[in-house]
Every structure is written in C-alpha cells, then in structure tokens.
Design a binder for these strands. Sequence first.
DNA 1: CCACGATCCTGCTAGC
DNA 2: TGCTAGCAGGATCGTG
Length: 281
Amino acid sequence: MPELPEVETIKRGLQAYLVGHRIDAIDIRLSKMLTGEKDRILGAMITAVRRLGKGLVIDLDNAFSIAIHIKMTGQLIYKGSKVPTGIEVSKEKVGRLPSSHTHLVVALDQGAKLYYNDFRQFGWIKILPTEAVADVPFFKALGPEPLKDLDLATFTKIVQRSKGPIKPLLMDQKRIAGIGNIYANDGLFRAKIDPRRKASSLTGDEIQRLISAIEEVLKKGLEAGGSSEWSYVNALGQTGGYQKLFLVYGQAGKPCIDCGTPIEKIQFGGRGTFFCPHCQF
DNA sequence: CCACGATCCTGCTAGC
DNA sequence: TGCTAGCAGGATCGTG
C-alpha cells in the first residue's frame, strides 16, 4: 500500500522524467478512473510534479493540472528515451505495457508514454485547473506533512486532542498526511507503544519517541525506494526494498527483532495490526 | 459530531 | 484437484 515514502519515490521519478514533455494524446481505457475533460490538457507541457500526502499532482503550463491518487494498487510508469539503458520494468509487478490493468495511457512527445495501471481500480485521476487542486476534498482536508511541517509541538497537540487510539490517529490523513498501515505499525513498534493505547494517555516522552520513530521509518522507507510487498513500483516500474526491512508489518509469528517474542497480528480499527506483545505497551 | 461498518475491486490463498 | 470463501486495504459514504 503506497504511503508517503512510496508516493514520494514515484514523485521524484516523475519529476525527473516528465518535466519538459508535451502531452500529445490521452487514451482512456477505463473511463471511471478519470474525471474532467481530457481535451483541456492536450498540447500542454508538464512543468512540475508535486506530492500532497499520498496524492500526486502533475502541473501543466496552461494552468491545468492532473491530480492523482493511486490508493492501494495504482502504478504510474514512464516509458521513453530518457530512461537509462538497462532499466526494465518489473516482470512480476508490471509485465508488458499496456496490460489488462492499464486504464490510462498518456502519449508524450518524442514517443514517450505514461501508463496508469490499477488492478483494484480504487484510484482516481482528475483533470482540473491548477488553482482548483487545493479545493479537492482529499487535498483540502490533509493534515501536516511528516518530515516537513510536523514538529513536536504540532504533533503533541494532535495526539493530546484525540479521543481515540493512537494507531488510527496516525493513519488519519486529516490529522497527519502520508502515513498508512505499514509505517504506522513499524513506527509504533520503534517507539515501543501499543497500537491500541488511547492517544491522549501518551506521556510527553512517548510522544517524543513516536514522532522520532515515525520520521525514522519514513526515512528508511524512502532510502529503500518504498516497499513492494504488494503492487508498488516506482516511476520506471522497478520494485523497492523496504519490504525486506519491515520491523513488524507482515511479520506475524516471526520473532521480534528486539526480544524474540513472536509478533502478534490482530484486527484493530478494521486493519491488520502487528506488534510485539512484550516490547509494546 | 464521532465511531464504526460497508463499499469499491481483483488476485491470491487457505481450506474443504 | 478444483472450487469458493475470505482476505488485503485508502478513502468515502451511510448508519447509529
């Protein structure tokens, strides 16, 4: 499930390869994925790629933008002459392009293409004026960005104001942007906090540990180029490596890396929740 | 207003 | 072996 590190990795790739390209044509293969008029962006040049939480925005030179949320299984893959030689898309995660899961193909100049794949079809793509991007409900409601504008004072306020448990709070995009199930689980483990703890019961020391732990796991995820446990690949179709570094996510029954106690998996807040029953309390 | 469940979707897997 | 039920889950919508 793409979260901040995965989407940021995609963003950096798209920024490097898409900027300067002109949009020549758009092939919509599954119409429900896209809203807005595709004609508005034909002939426009890509000027920037931004990430807002787990969302992406491709800005154009005609005051229009393409806003994208890849949700669980979306992939954005660039193919073109800018790709360094020897780099190939993952056969396992992507395969031949376009595939039966390719819902949008953007034809760029110089024969380059941008493919949108999404086998679960949960994602969305919106064509809209750049100035309207901030009013998209998902973007408008986003909380502060970790690694950017989430300082200890802000985080403390968010945690202490909350009535519910800490893990769903971390995953609530309205309160903190970009964190999903993987990095919430691993961050809570790193901070040695039980995911079921009432957020407002955390001590100042625990809040401090938690923000540091979240920053640490997000940075580790970024360094590893994201986690490809599921269908995530970067903008060139390559897998990431953080799935090899999971602390507790997906590790049910395996020994805790700190104490050896088997990692437990429970359903909590409607999500698979992994923790060490000995280290986290 | 908040908490919680259902919903969207399909590939994989556990279990009979 | 072959089928199916269940699971994975981000964000949104509806219900209590």
